[in-house]
Nucleic acid binder design. Structure first.
Lengths: 180, 180
DNA sequence: CGTTTACGTCAGCCATATTGACTTATTTTC
DNA sequence: GAAAATAAGTCAATATGGCTGACGTAAACG
């Protein structure tokens, strides 16, 4: 599932790879970074996919479990906004997670219309395993990159996010940290 | 389409964000990197999505145009191996791209069973635009990160790829570069 | 009391992927 | 030269994960 396996590609040499060394590129064309990000992300999500398919879940379930674990007590509406999907799409995934005992819903204390979302022990364990898998990949990669790479990677990844939305993502992360 | 818009998430504080500062973490928990990569990749592909939907295409078309542009004359079997999808899945996408004049197929010179894939001028222009969009995001991000960031990002991204497949990805990239 | 809000759900649609079985053309092998 | 293997295309059925629109219900707001 995490396989990229670009094996034995004896492709005829003649292509469109511009050197593109015009503005402090350090000799690295952007198209290389584009392709590396593509493959890196593919393997990154592949880690989780393997575990998820065994449970009959998909990436949608992963995202829900992850964010609910990070933000216990979040409302359904909050989750919809983070995931940027529709109520209907979330509905099926959420129902499956609730039915299988990964997520719990509790009516809000002040506003009883709200169904606040919490991970059940089963869901917390799944979230923990998923984070552990991906943590391992980051740890290995950053270890190869030497000291300072973690801070550099953090800065780089944050910089790749749309500037308008970066503050909100940082707020989301800060909100989830510093608890427990 | 690139929107993440995690706005106004007034989520109740009480969570599972482990500090996880145990093995040279530079104070940055891996879960932060995981989430940043998630949002970064989302915006990264969002750039291309906007352009593609206007043409009635999806991400599958993007991948095909990109790789055929980088590897002109590749066989259908090669493309299947890179994309890791089935012949049947590729079929529809490829047909649409050919019908709309983005991709051309030519019978192989030595083996006439092969339908070698080439981008038509229209397809080359689309590939160029898509790369330009994503190049812009990398350029902005790396500019924010200061000197040396490009090389560091390249190393980091390559390190995130499964070790077994890294060599093949590097070969693929090297193969596509150094032409034209 | 009427409106709005939070959530859920029914029904239908679309895009992208899957598997299996089969055809056609062509090359390779014996 | 006939048989087998290969490259590609296609048909049919299925799954997943999104989408829109419409509607229902309970609770809160004003």
């Amino acid at each position: 599932m995490a396989d990229v396996n670009v094996s034995s590609l004896a492709i005829s040499p003649k292509g469109a790879g511009k050197t593109d060394d015009s503005q402090g590129n350090e000799g690295i064309p952007a198209v290389e970074l584009i392709e590396l990000l593509f493959f890196a992300y593919r393997d990154f999500v592949g880690d989780a996919d393997e575990l998820l398919v065994r449970l009959g879940f998909g990436r949608a379930h992963h995202r829900v479990v992850h964010f609910v674990n990070r933000h216990p007590g979040m409302r359904v509406a909050d989750l919809l906004e983070v995931l940027k999907i529709t109520k209907q799409s979330l509905g099926r995934v959420l129902r499956e997670l609730v039915d299988n005992g990964y997520i719990e819903q509790k009516a809000g204390a002040t506003d009883r219309r709200e169904r606040l979302l919490y991970v059940a022990p089963k869901g917390e364990e799944l979230a923990r395993q998923l984070v552990a898998l991906q943590t391992r990949r980051f740890a290995r990669a950053l270890n190869e990159c030497g000291p300072g790479a973690r801070a550099a990677a953090r800065k780089f990844l944050a910089s790749m996010i749309d500037p308008e939305q970066r503050a909100e993502v940082e707020r989301l992360i800060a909100n989830a940290n510093g608890k427990k």
